[in-house]
Simulated assay, not measured.
Amino acid sequence: MLTEISDIEKAGIRIKDRLFISPRCNIIMPYHKLLDKLYEEAKGPGKIGTTGRGIGPVYADKVSYNGIRIADLLDSEVFSEKLQTQLRVKNKILKALGAKPLSQSQIERDFAKYRTRIKPFVSETFSILNDAYDKKKNILMEGAQGVFLDNDFGTYPYVTASNVISGSASSGAGIAPAKVRSVIGVTKAYTTRVGAGPFPTELTNKLGDKLQTGGLEFGATTGRKRRCGWLDLELIRFAAKINGFTEICITKLDVLDNFPKIKICTHYRLNGRRIKYEDCDLKTLEKAKPVYKTYKGWMKSIKDAKNFRDLPKEAQIYLRDIEKMVGVEITYVSTGVKRNEIIKI
């Protein structure tokens, strides 16, 4: 985060009084990253493909009352006391897993620098957001990860440590659920996944490679190649229901420009019967067979399209069928990588 702040400031963008960090935020400590990697290595063939950034361990500490928060960092005495307590436990675990223990004095020196740098941005965000709402200002919140990385409703254990569905915005930001007016679901025109986990529509052939290359599909955090497959409407329908989508934005439609045939997964079947995502455990989802509807591709660039009517007929049919099968209106479609290459329907 401090690197991002520096990069933005170097670009000449003022962020003072524009960036606010909640004092309630839990801090990813050096031992969290180490433990994340050590836990993953210890699982052997049962690895889940963690990013190794310490997310799981910091959330584990949060819910087990062992977290160190931004508010603690700002008080050097409190920070030192809490760090001492945690290192009593964490260094024993690190040693048991074959790693060297961490030095409290070194961590305190490092975090003293962070304290100085971050302090100007720390502010109680609850008041900021609710005051903005009371003044009828627009508030835009963005989900941290995709729906199916949600800790409860995603493809557990191949998920993230937190809840990322729209309802989590209330608990995360401190905004009452009734105050949320609209929920925009964002999905690519095809499906991707980083790391391990079930992926019913995955294409492990040249078509998958074509999607990966054309869409520049690399993980934002790790740089790993994303797995790619056809659009999965079984997942989109579930996502629309659990999040309460009021509208949908389809991104990367242009990646499909050079596909003579395009498929959409309409639903799953297993052992001769139709099954829903919400009824699947991990083992069942891995066995589920996607049922496809095939579409004729448009085989031309759509990047110059300015409105829905400018899109090729085949692309219009593709989008309208998504709307019908999901039951939510598509209001935005991206047709290229530039900011202005987007259509509002």
Score class of each variant (00 low, 15 high):
Trp298Pro: 04
Thr201Met: 01
Gly208Ala: 02
Leu74Pro: 02
Ser103Tyr: 01
Pro198Asn: 10
Thr50Val: 14
Leu129Thr: 04
Pro101Tyr: 09
Lys37Arg: 15
Thr155Leu: 10
Phe238Leu: 12
Ser80Ala: 14
Ile128Pro: 04
Val180Ile: 15
Thr192Ile: 11
Asp131Gln: 14
Asn243His: 07
Leu231Ile: 11
Pro101His: 06
Trp230Leu: 06
Thr125His: 00
Lys344Cys: 14
Glu329Ile: 01
Leu253Asn: 05
Lys252Glu: 11
Val122Gln: 04
Phe308Pro: 04
Tyr114Ile: 13
Tyr65Lys: 07
Thr192Lys: 01
Arg274Ser: 15
Ile118Thr: 05
Ser76Gln: 15
Ile317His: 05
Lys62Pro: 05
Ser168Asn: 14
Ile236Phe: 02
Arg273Asn: 14
Arg117Glu: 15
Cys249Tyr: 02
Lys113Arg: 11
Phe218Pro: 03
Pro57Thr: 05
Ala173Thr: 10
Gly336His: 09
Gln106Met: 11
Glu142Val: 04
Asn243Ala: 10
Leu102His: 02
Pro57Leu: 08
Gly195Thr: 12
Leu83Asn: 02
Asp150Leu: 06
Leu256Glu: 00
Lys324Gln: 08
Gly223Arg: 11
Val58Asp: 01
Phe148Asn: 03
Phe218Ser: 06
Thr125Gly: 03
Gly215Val: 06
Asp61Thr: 04
Asp72Pro: 01
Thr294Asp: 06
Gly154Asp: 07
Ile302Glu: 02
Thr192Gly: 03
Ser64Tyr: 06
Lys293Gln: 13
Thr221Ala: 10
Glu124Ile: 09
Asp254Cys: 08
Ile139Lys: 05
Asp36Asn: 01
Ile275Asp: 11
Ile68Ala: 04
Arg14Ser: 15
Tyr292Arg: 11
Thr284Met: 15
Arg53Met: 13
Asn26Ile: 06
Thr50Trp: 08
Trp230Ala: 00
Phe79Glu: 08
Lys113Ala: 08
Asn307His: 07
Asn271Lys: 15
Asp75Ile: 03
Gln86Phe: 00
Gln86Thr: 00
Thr246Pro: 02
Glu314Phe: 08
Ala240Cys: 07
Ile28Ser: 03
Pro57Cys: 07
Thr204Asn: 14
Glu81Gln: 11
Gln106Ser: 10
Ala220Cys: 09
Ala315Thr: 03
Ser182Arg: 14
Ile165Cys: 02
Ile70Cys: 09
Leu94Cys: 07
Arg269His: 12
Asp152Asn: 12
Ile8Leu: 15
Ala220Met: 00
Lys119Asp: 01
Met141Arg: 11
Ser22Arg: 02
Leu94Trp: 08
Gly52Lys: 09
Thr284Glu: 15
Asp281Pro: 12
Arg193Cys: 10
Gly208Ser: 00
